[in-house]
Each structure stands twice: as structure tokens, then as C-alpha cells.
């Protein structure tokens, strides 16, 4: 029986009158690949932000990796994010004036000390050994997403969060990215929480939960 890495109890997040996430109870065992599906505005991104320590819940309890995120200070949350979480964004969010290697090194800088050799090998691992010195503007969407993945895993996070990582990619690139993530998970054994509205992408996970209007409506296991 694997230990639980994410445990929420009555987790709620409201913005003024709008309740983005109704009280939610969720457990994620360590090493699981959880897909979160729902329409836009269904609260799936809110859930991801809460779990990643980017946002604070309005009510309820939230334990991630043994840390009570509600008890952490602002700087404590930042420490939690850099040591525990890696995030892949739909828009990549690479720093435009830094090369691929430097974008990875930026994550190392916030975590501890920059180490160029390690950043290079991380990029080689995601198959970008030939584009180390290119700026994001010179890379294709798939390549940018791979830089984003290298950056997310460089600090060996326990938890990898994906916010529609393939939302802007064509089918071929999507498959490549998902294959890559699967491979990396096998090696690094991190837990994945991936938000998507794409059924096909969700199917890569072990389990899928469906959110609608901030409420967990359905949950299903994938057989793979």
C-alpha cells in the first residue's frame, strides 16, 4: 500500500461570491498518475494551483507530501514549491531572453545553485541536446514544451503538475510529449497530476476524476 501524497478534506476555494471549488475530498497515493478532466471553469485549474502551493484554499484541509500547506507562510510555500513541485504549463512560460539551458538553470537557481552541466544533461534527456543554446522563440511548440518538462523535473520533484501541457500541440507532438512523461515517471517515480480536457490525454493516467462546476462528479480507473 503506497503512502498518500495528496490528501484534501473539504477543500474549498472561492473568489468573492463565486465558488470555484466546492468542498472536495481527494486522496492521491504516491506514484499515481491522476488526470483531472472538466470543462473550462470547472475548477480543475484551481485544484491544481491549490495542490501546487500557488494558491491558498478558502476552507478545508490540504496536506501535500506531509506538509500542511495552510500552515505555511508565504516564503514557506515558495520553499515547498521549489523543493517539492514541478509545473508544466500550457503556454510553456519560458523566459524569452534566456536560452533553453538558461531556462532550466533558472529553476536550479531558485532551488539551490545553478549547475550548467546538469541542466544540459536534463535537456539531452528530453531529446533537446541539439538545441541547448536556442531561445524559446527559435523552438517549435513541442520543443518548448520539452524545455518546460526538463525545467520541471530538474529539481527532482515528488509531484509533477501539468496544466493542459498538450493543449497547444498537434496530435503527433502530444503523443511524443506523453511518451516522454511516461518514460521519465518510470525513472524518477514522481506523482503526476495533469489537468486536461482531452479524453485521449487523460487516458494516459492511472485514474481520471471529472470536475463540473467545482464538484467531483465522476471518477474512473484506466486499465493500462
Amino acid at each position: 500500500m503506497a503512502t498518500t501524497i495528496i490528501e484534501t478534506g473539504g477543500l474549498t476555494r472561492s473568489y468573492g461570491d463565486i465558488c470555484a471549488l466546492k468542498p472536495l475530498d481527494l486522496q492521491v497515493p504516491e506514484g499515481e498518475w491522476l488526470s483531472v478532466m472538466g470543462h473550462s471553469g470547472s475548477g480543475k485549474s484551481t485544484l491544481m494551483n491549490l495542490v501546487g502551493g500557488l494558491d491558498r484554499p478558502s476552507a478545508g484541509s490540504l496536506m501535500v507530501g506531509g506538509e500542511d500547506l495552510l500552515a505555511l507562510s508565504e516564503d514557506g510555500l515558495a520553499r515547498f514549491r521549489r523543493e517539492f513541485v514541478g509545473i508544466i504549463f500550457q503556454q510553456h512560460h519560458l523566459v524569452p531572453y534566456l536560452t533553453a539551458v538558461e531556462n532550466v538553470m533558472l529553476a536550479q537557481y531558485f532551488h539551490s545553485v545553478p549547475d550548467e552541466a546538469e541542466a544540459r544533461s536534463a535537456l539531452e534527456r528530453v531529446g533537446l541536446g541539439h538545441r541547448l543554446k536556442n531561445r524559446p522563440g527559435e523552438l517549435s511548440g513541442g520543443e518548448q514544451q520539452r524545455v518546460c518538462i526538463a525545467r520541471a523535473i530538474i529539481n527532482s520533484p515528488k509531484l509533477l503538475l501539468g496544466d493542459e501541457p498538450t493543449g497547444n500541440l498537434d496530435h503527433k507532438s502530444t503523443v511524443m510529449i506523453m511518451e516522454l512523461l511516461k518514460e521519465l515517471r518510470a525513472e524518477e517515480r514522481f506523482t503526476v497530476v495533469m489537468v486536461t480536457h482531452n479524453q485521449e490525454v487523460a487516458a494516459w493516467g492511472d485514474r481520471t476524476i471529472y470536475l463540473d462546476d467545482g464538484v467531483l462528479v465522476r471518477e474512473e480507473r484506466t486499465n493500462s
Binding site: L54, R81, R82, E83, V85, H93, R151
Partner: peptide, 10 residues
Amino acid sequence: GLMKAMGGTR
């Protein structure tokens, strides 16, 4: 925002 999300403190 990205820098903060990556774990940079304020």
C-alpha cells in the same frame, strides 16, 4: 509569476 511559481520567494 513564473519565477514565483518555480519557487522563488518574493
